[in-house]
């Protein structure tokens, strides 16, 4: 497996605050990498920096061998990277349909693919013509994920997809992510819910204080509770 995405020495400053201090990790092509870490470790900033929403002050970000560090956000997206922010950022005044139509850059969304998405996230079909602002929190999360996968993308950056979701929806989400990683996409997912992360992740990168403190396979990390305790400050599965 080769690295689809690699970060080397990435530093990001937001205003006066120095958030990332030389982040380095690789995301292997095909599969799901979990980006873990305590609150404030810099996970969200890392995703935003990859997406070009914050500018890296130093270091290099490569996607598929190409340096994207200084590219504009829309150009980065057009390389086949989709982003689901923690805030979901759905367009509340637009209908569910319009949200997805907008996300499909190549033209009207493929009906087959929509059916597949509806199969996972049934609520989207039900509220198809409703302004997205009327959806519940979980339904908004579904829409945000659906927007990222309405067309095939090579890399999905997803920030805390399970936050505030009911267990039944989390199960659907797991199924969807599994199909995606076994098929067309590579996923990089920020997660606080370790039970979820463990079930789904192939690889793991753990951040601490603006750096990646550990990178490796998920199985090994899940088995090493001392390391978890050290890096995440919790016992296995204890944190929700």
């Amino acid at each position: 497996m080769t690295a689809l995405l690699s970060l080397r020495g990435v530093e990001t400053r937001i205003g006066r605050y120095h958030i990332l201090h030389g982040v380095e990790f690789d995301v292997a092509e095909g599969g799901l990498t979990m980006l873990l870490g305590r609150n404030g470790a810099g996970k969200t900033t890392t995703l935003r920096t990859i997406m070009g929403l914050w500018r890296a002050a130093a270091g290099e970000i490569r996607f598929d061998g190409r340096d994207i560090t200084k590219m504009e956000t829309p150009d980065i997206a057009r390389l086949g990277i989709a982003y689901v922010p923690e805030s979901m950022a759905i367009f509340a005044d637009l209908t569910v349909q319009e949200n997805l139509v907008l996300a499909a850059r190549a033209g009207p969304p493929d009906p087959k693919r929509l059916e597949w998405i509806f199969g996972r996230f049934e609520a989207l079909k039900r509220f198809w013509t409703l302004p997205a602002g009327f959806l519940s929190g979980g339904q908004k999360q579904m829409l945000a994920v659906a927007r990222a996968i309405v067309e095939p993308r090579r890399l999905l950056l997803i920030d805390e997809p399970t936050k505030g979701l009911a267990p039944a929806i989390i199960a659907n989400m797991i199924d969807a992510f599994r199909e995606l990683k076994d098929g067309e996409s590579t996923l990089l997912v920020v997660e606080q819910n370790f039970a979820f992360a463990r079930q789904l992740g192939d690889a793991v990168a753990v951040m601490d204080d603006g750096k990646v403190a550990h990178q490796g396979g998920m199985a090994a990390f899940a088995a090493d509770s001392a390391l978890q305790q050290h890096l995440l400050g919790m016992g296995m599965g204890e944190h929700q």
């Binding site: 504009e72 997206a77 989709a82 950022a89 367009f91 005044d93 637009l94 319009e98 907008l102």
Partner: peptide, 21 residues
């Protein structure tokens, strides 16, 4: 028009979807 309405709500997300706002 769809792009404009989306951009009014959240320009950053429109960019992240690949449009030059």
């Amino acid at each position: 028009g769809l792009l404009i309405r989306a951009g009014v709500e959240n320009g950053e997300m429109v960019e992240a979807l690949g449009y030059r706002i």
